[in-house]
Simulated assay, not measured.
Amino acid sequence: MKFLMTFTIASTIITSTFVQPAIAQWRTGNTYSEMGENQAGVLSQFSLVNKTKNFKSINDEAKNNPNLGIFRGAIENYQYGLAWACSTTFPGIYDDKGNLLPPCNSGTRGTPPTSSRSVYFFDNSGFLLLIKPFNPSTVGFNGDLYAELIPNDPLFGGKRNTIGYKIFKPGQKQAVQTYRLDLSALDINQDKAINDLAYILQKDLLSKAIAVKSSPPDNKPRLSSLANILLQQRFKKGIPPVFKQP
């Protein structure tokens, strides 16, 4: 009996030295809804991620330039389509008794940094409430995020420093979308807001930026404070740890 017990303990020790857990791999991201200027329709959605689907870290490729950040592959599944958000412009769907139906009846009004956020309704996690799920009309693409310091930004009358965020589709020189982040309106670390993707995600900086649009006939860029980019969800995906032989 004593021999059997000793053998069992020894087997356990020997086995534990050969079976080691692999470290779990995780990637995080924020999904955003880009609003139309009617402040009701969601015209596109995409995710900003810190790692690729193969769990490869996305690092700044412009390390030697503190005023420029290039994050290739940080934009994931950019899709055009349509959804309607819960807002004061389009409050939702009512039943035959005039009662507002879910989800819009459970939300809370948005708050600054941009005053136009106050027309939208968000859940307790701060995520935009949609009347119905986003319906994509195009196949999504993965793209790149550029962040650049713009001193004395002419779009702000040449009086403020901003960070320009741009989304690029691979192989194209024209940005799919452009935003401006007003540094004077926020208490943030400028260097990290340009060169640190984890910081951009954590502080949810894209939803604090203002979209830049252009309109005929001159197609000059202009700030569009009504075309918000709003946080739809945060996610964390990973590969759970597995036991394997070393």
Results as ranks from 00 to 15, higher is better:
Gly164Gln: 15
Gly164Tyr: 01
Gly164Leu: 12
Gly164Asn: 13
Tyr165Val: 01
Tyr165Ala: 00
Tyr165Met: 02
Lys166Ile: 00
Lys166Asp: 03
Lys166Trp: 01
Lys166Cys: 00
Lys166Ala: 05
Ile167Gly: 00
Ile167Met: 05
Ile167Glu: 04
Ile167Lys: 03
Ile167Asn: 01
Phe168Ile: 04
Phe168Gly: 02
Phe168Tyr: 15
Lys169Thr: 08
Lys169Val: 06
Lys169Ile: 04
Lys169Leu: 08
Lys169Ala: 09
Lys169Arg: 15
Pro170Phe: 06
Pro170Lys: 03
Pro170Tyr: 03
Gly171Leu: 10
Gly171His: 07
Gly171Met: 09
Gly171Tyr: 09
Gln172His: 12
Gln172Asn: 13
Gln172Ile: 11
Gln172Pro: 02
Gln172Gly: 00
Gln172Lys: 13
Gln172Leu: 14
Lys173Gln: 14
Lys173Cys: 02
Lys173Phe: 13
Gln174Gly: 00
Gln174Ala: 11
Gln174Val: 13
Gln174Tyr: 04
Gln174Phe: 05
Ala175Val: 02
Ala175Trp: 04
Ala175Asn: 05
Ala175Arg: 03
Ala175Pro: 12
Val176Tyr: 07
Val176Asp: 11
Val176Ile: 13
Val176Gly: 02
Val176Asn: 09
Val176Arg: 11
Val176Phe: 05
Gln177Ser: 11
Gln177Asn: 09
Thr178His: 02
Thr178Leu: 04
Thr178Met: 09
Thr178Arg: 13
Thr178Ser: 12
Thr178Glu: 12
Tyr179His: 10
Tyr179Ala: 00
Tyr179Cys: 01
Tyr179Lys: 04
Tyr179Glu: 01
Arg180Phe: 00
Arg180Gly: 00
Arg180Pro: 02
Leu181Arg: 08
Leu181Gln: 07
Leu181Pro: 04
Leu181Gly: 01
Leu181Tyr: 10
Leu181Lys: 08
Asp182Gly: 03
Asp182Glu: 12
Asp182Leu: 09
Asp182Val: 07
Asp182His: 05
Asp182Ile: 10
Leu183Gln: 11
Leu183Arg: 10
Leu183Tyr: 10
Leu183Asp: 11
Leu183His: 08
Leu183Met: 10
Ser184Tyr: 06
Ser184Gln: 14
Ser184Lys: 12
Ser184Gly: 12
Ser184Cys: 02
Ala185Asn: 11
Ala185Lys: 15
Ala185Ser: 14
Ala185Trp: 04
Ala185Ile: 10
Leu186Gln: 12
Leu186Gly: 04
Leu186Asp: 08
Leu186Trp: 10
Asp187Trp: 00
Asp187Glu: 13
Asp187Leu: 08
Asp187Gln: 14
Asp187Ile: 06
Asp187His: 10
Asp187Met: 08
Asp187Asn: 15
Ile188Lys: 09
Ile188Ala: 04
Ile188Tyr: 07
Ile188Phe: 04
Ile188Cys: 06
Ile188Pro: 07
Ile188Asp: 05
Asn189Asp: 15
Asn189Phe: 03
Asn189Leu: 06
Gln190Asn: 08
Gln190Phe: 00
Asp191Pro: 00
Asp191Leu: 14
Asp191Glu: 15
Asp191Ile: 10
Lys192Gly: 02
Lys192Leu: 13
Lys192Tyr: 11
Lys192Ile: 03
Ala193Asp: 07
Ala193Thr: 09
Ala193Lys: 11
Ala193Leu: 07
Ala193Ile: 08
Ile194Gln: 07
Ile194Met: 06
Ile194Glu: 08
Ile194Asp: 05
Ile194Ser: 05
Ile194Cys: 05
Asn195Met: 02
Asn195Thr: 14
Asn195Ile: 01
Asn195Ala: 04
Asp196Trp: 06
Asp196His: 05
Asp196Pro: 03
